[in-house]
Simulated assay, not measured.
Amino acid sequence: MKINFSTKVSQDYLSVKNGFDQTLFTKLSPPFPPVKLQRFDGSEIGDIVSLELNFLLFRQRWTSEITDSQTGDSEYFFVDEGVELPFFLKKWKHKHRIIKEGNHSTIRDEVEFDAGSGLLSLLLYPALYLQFAYRKPIYKKVFA
């Protein structure tokens, strides 16, 4: 299943690229489930990001590896792929794109996920979509 979510921000794409750091990652974490960042290497190929999701009655680890990262004349992107996922996900691939638009830019999240069954993926879709919708005002504020 796929989710695509775009947010226009006021800063140029290279400034936005430089703002994709541990501080931003922490701000983007939704209120539920609470997230404890355990490791954040960055957004270059081979970097690892690992966190613990607290679902109150149980905790789940989510670890992703950055598998691609490129900066061009009009776009920067990096891709994180899940290597250790919560039990309800079998596959996770998230391409973070920052696209130049004059002196502004668009942050585009392109996500592919699979829960192992079509029905479960369909049931997860609204919750995951809301997680990305939650990011929109944060992106706009941070990159104003």
Rank of each mutant, 00 (worst) to 15 (best):
M1H: 10
M1R: 07
I3T: 05
N4V: 14
F5H: 12
F5L: 10
S6G: 07
S6M: 13
T7F: 07
K8P: 05
K8R: 15
V9C: 05
Q11N: 06
Q11W: 07
D12G: 08
D12I: 00
D12Y: 10
Y13T: 00
Y13L: 02
L14S: 15
S15K: 12
S15Q: 15
V16Q: 01
K17P: 01
G19W: 02
D21H: 10
Q22W: 04
Q22L: 09
L24Q: 02
K27T: 13
S29D: 13
S29I: 15
P30Q: 02
P33T: 09
P33Q: 05
P33I: 08
P34D: 04
P34Q: 06
V35F: 03
K36Q: 06
K36W: 13
Q38C: 11
D41P: 07
S43D: 03
I45R: 05
G46F: 06
G46H: 05
D47R: 03
D47G: 05
S50W: 12
L51T: 11
L51M: 15
L51Y: 09
N54Q: 08
F55E: 04
F55K: 02
L57E: 07
R59G: 14
Q60C: 07
R61K: 14
R61L: 13
W62Y: 03
T63M: 06
S64H: 03
E65V: 14
I66S: 03
I66F: 03
T67W: 01
S69Q: 10
Q70I: 10
T71G: 12
T71V: 14
D73I: 08
E75M: 12
Y76V: 09
F78C: 14
F78H: 13
V79S: 02
D80K: 02
G82Y: 00
G82T: 15
G82D: 03
V83L: 04
V83N: 03
E84D: 01
L85Y: 03
L85Q: 10
P86T: 07
F87W: 15
F88L: 14
K90W: 02
K91G: 12
K91A: 15
K91W: 06
W92V: 08
K93L: 11
H96T: 15
H96A: 09
R97Q: 08
R97D: 02
I98D: 02
K100A: 11
E101M: 10
E101T: 06
N103M: 05
N103T: 09
N103S: 09
S105M: 01
T106S: 08
I107Y: 00
I107S: 00
I107E: 00
D109R: 01
D109H: 01
E110W: 05
V111L: 15
V111A: 06
E112C: 11
F113G: 08
D114V: 04
D114Q: 14
D114C: 11
G116I: 07
G118I: 10
L123F: 12
Y125A: 09
Y125K: 13
Y125P: 08
L128R: 01
L128Y: 03
L130K: 07
L130V: 02
L130S: 08
L130C: 09
R135E: 00
R135N: 01
P137M: 08
I138H: 01
I138S: 00
Y139I: 04
K140E: 11
K140Y: 04
K140N: 02
K141M: 12
V142M: 01
F143G: 01
A144K: 10
A144F: 13
